[in-house]
Design a protein around this nucleic acid. Structure first.
Lengths: 198, 198, 198, 198
DNA sequence: GATGAATGAGCATTCATTCAT
DNA sequence: CATGAATGAATGCTCATTCAT
């Protein structure tokens, strides 16, 4: 693990910070390196030195963001200690908390994942794998033991977390007024209605 | 009402058709007019003659598509004749049917709506208004009469249709194997679980 | 002399009128045929039928305008009956009168004559020749007889009419407030100071 | 004050030089960036890097040119030391000298100033202000003291320098054979006739 | 005569990326 | 590590002109 210089860390942070600001105002595709340079005070050369290319910035942002999110999720699920309802709560809560704590970041990620080839890049696949693994690790036992309803794997996220994601996305775009946490109980309860056994 | 020449209609159709093909393979932003021209056999000038600019193509595609969808939805809801469960079924069914019947179109629309300024353009707002109106017209009475649970307006679509949309989107991107209709009953039942009164 | 249909005359007039309006607002080069069509209500095809090409419109406008101007000038000079001072007055007066009576036209002509190849087109040369001829016809005798000062031919217009033209041009561009006629006596007197014998 | 790299200065100069060449052969509007690139050896990107856009090239050319001209004028007027006749001579002489020393530049400027919106751009206004100021500074006292005739401000340039400008313009367009300096005495004398008191 | 669809060369401009200093 | 000049392919769009109906 190479020791990173302080100046390197600062510079990287400044660029990523500036990039997030840009992405909050425009689509990923329509933000130019030049804009990011202007905002961050870095020169073009410097940006390329640190990130290789534009995609490098995006991936750095993406994996930092998702990693943070995943860790929060994992921690929350640990604390749920295998109680079905608590697990669902952990899932939704950590999602809402993260989005509200990192709105620019969240918006960028939603935006990035909508890009055509997004899901085929290795870092994304890697994150996806880790996400699936975490989910499986905590929910599989509950399903096996009959304490949660079994759902087709492919549908799981659409049924359980998509509603919250959808609302969050609309909130970030200012299409709805109230923050996701306003309706936190509702989203949890909705998810619960789906997964609970009859 | 000016009589439109036959050639005009044919040309427009060819361009829109070609555009849909392009958008199926790449992001809206990264499809060039030149590509659409190549595919459609139209010249650049001709495209601009008929659509004004790139956005003109997108909007034509979008409003044609959404209008068709809305009409299908409206018709389906009429036939549900105010039966709560039938209304929910109509909602989900017409959505799935339309997506599967018009995959390229659906993909384009999902893609378009994710663009940064998408929701502020007048044609979109207009369609949104009509959508809301249709939903309200059919569901409001059911809620008032206590036959369906009341949900915060802003959350409605996130809770009821977002799961199906999410799955459809993933299917169009080939992230899941089975078509939405495979899980049609599941999505209906999930929606039903959310809206039914306790 | 071919008998022109009424509809032809009307259509031509409408187009020229619209063109003048356009040229009042933008440079000749940056006015498109499409704009002229929009303003005149004529179709592209119609415009081309009547004028051949864009230059055709310009030349029609130009020669109509200059011809009218020349005729006014000629008439004014006739009435001066060879009195030196009266001839100078006729020259300046008819210029100012025409510009103020036809501001859009004047502006167009000034604009047209500034174009790179303007002075080499045959119709322009023809008009120039006629102008020179008129001037010579009325002023040559006065110079020969020693009643007006002799000036190098090439300098004549620069010294005698350029000041008025310059002011008129600035007035048309709204760079000066008062109309040329406000300073009519001044311009005449200035010209007179130049041409009168010591 | 950032130290400009040598290469920057050289590149800028090359582009401006090439642009002047182009403008000597065709109207400003009909010279393409591509042509300027070809002639200057610069790439498109480089041109945009240094000038921002086409207008940027024009403005650089214009303000460099006019500034140089103004400085020459100012110096000439200083040397006239408040002698009325000498001031008029300085005015006309420096004009003629500059035009003959910088024919391409002069032609460009005449061409540029004829454009529709030319007089409203800030740099132009700025130069105009400075020009007026210089003129006023040197001529106002002479007028106040009754040694030069008072003329309406708006007419001043039309009466005093427009003749020379007009001739210069025609010479640059090769509409007259002899250079302005051929008639230098005449233009001075003409101006003198206008401004001298009776 | 009138219409407007079609053409396609041409243009200004953008932008990710490279690389010499 | 930093800088910013340089590159040039690519893009959206304009416009005079032609021509079938």
């Amino acid at each position: 693990m190479k020791q990173e210089r302080l100046s390197t860390r600062i510079r990287r942070r400044a660029v990523l910070e500036a990039a997030l600001d840009c992405f909050a105002e425009a689509d990923v595709e329509s933000v130019s390196i030049a804009e990011i340079c202007d905002r961050s005070g870095a020169s073009v050369g410097s940006v390329y030195h640190h990130f290789g290319n534009k995609e490098g910035i995006l991936l750095a942002l993406l994996s930092d963001g998702l990693t943070a999110h995943l860790e929060a999720l994992e921690q929350a699920l640990e604390q749920a200690e295998g109680h079905p309802r608590a697990c669902i709560e952990a899932l939704i809560d950590s999602l809402i908390q993260w989005v509200e704590a990192n709105p620019r970041w969240a918006q960028f990620i939603y935006s990035y994942l909508n890009r055509s080839g997004a899901s085929s890049s290795e870092p994304i696949l890697e994150i996806n794998r880790r996400y699936k693994q975490i989910i499986e690790q905590h929910f599989e036992p509950l399903i096996q033991s009959g304490r949660l309803r079994e759902l087709p794997t492919d549908c799981w996220s659409s049924l359980i977390v998509a509603p919250t994601h959808d609302y969050a996305r609309r909130w970030l775009r200012q299409q709805v007024r109230h923050s996701p946490s306003t309706h936190q109980r509702l989203f949890i309860e909705a998810a619960w209605r789906i997964v609970q056994c009859d």
